[in-house]
Design a protein around this nucleic acid. Structure first.
Lengths: 158, 158
DNA sequence: AATAAGATGCATTTAAGATGAATCTTTTAA
DNA sequence: TTAAAAGATTCATCTTAAATGCATCTTATT
């Protein structure tokens, strides 16, 4: 049960942009450097985000990428749904290619659907503004924090 | 966002066993034939389920596999948790191998945890007895049924 | 022009997962 | 006590999605 790195990077890129001061413009190279990942890969991530309408791109000198909408108007569920290629939890979710003989009366399938909807519902509660926020989420985060939160390191852009 | 086929087959195998009449014994070969899948693969699935305590195996002539506990005592969440190898939704869930610089203050990570917990909570509501049940789940299933339910085909074991 | 940026297409690599084959062990029954 | 039926184990191979890299193209600015 994993999301692709592609989706992970999509979210990280959006968070990076959302945390920038006005006008929120950055180059792909800058973000790739920040996260120490392949520029090639991130170019494709940026492309996909642009095609899905999450970011705008500006070519040429002085260009770069920026959010196409305010961060509070970008739902996390929306990003995942449009970025993650394969949302077929199990074979039978992909009806044309299903081979499972249980298909006609499978309580399990219904249950897995329900679980997936519950998953997405949580993401749908939050926006990129939440994901990019730096304060106010300690209560939530603390439950899972493996490293004590250091308020001096709360900004992505250093 | 997918579960492995390994997990899918684990669940299918358990459902098969749960639907058998007493004493609920079947051979791996029989189940592999039923689902038209590799016996080798299913052997490994059965092995894993035996190691996790979900089924008992009996070697030798007349042997086979059967549930180690009653179906109502086998939680679906438990099965998925013990069967799915990698539950690290994104890189940063795997703390030793994480490289994401956002780790210290990532609202996103907390959100993804919350989403994953919501997913598992749904599975934890149900047991193998539910998954194997043949009647009474139409209301739930109907919402997602792409094929009209045919009550003559409701039994796995034909 | 020259340079800086993103866009695109193709090729390659990688790793997880799936599959296959061979052999071993246990148990039953003839 | 041997043969056959069943699961257990190990190793090797295949497959495929995802990731990565490279080359080239397009657009925009100076």
């Amino acid at each position: 049960m994993q999301l692709t790195q592609f989706t992970d990077l999509s979210l990280r890129l959006l968070i990076y942009l959302a945390r920038l001061p006005e006008p929120g413009l950055a180059t792909i190279a800058e973000i790739a450097d920040y996260h120490q990942i392949s520029r090639n890969h991130l170019v494709k991530v940026a492309n996909s985000l642009a095609n899905e309408g999450f970011i705008m791109t500006t070519r040429g000198k002085g260009g770069g990428i920026q959010l196409a909408r305010p961060a509070y108007a970008i739902g996390l569920g929306e990003v995942v749904r449009r970025t993650e290629q394969n949302m077929n939890l199990v074979e039978c979710f992909d009806i044309p290619n299903n081979h499972c003989r249980l298909i006609r009366n499978c309580f399990l399938k219904a249950t897995l659907y329900e679980a997936q909807r519950a998953f997405m519902s949580v993401l749908d509660k939050y926006t990129l503004a939440d994901a990019a926020s730096v304060g106010g989420n300690n209560g939530i985060f603390d439950k899972h924090a493996e490293i004590p939160i250091d308020s001096n390191k709360l900004l992505v852009v250093e």
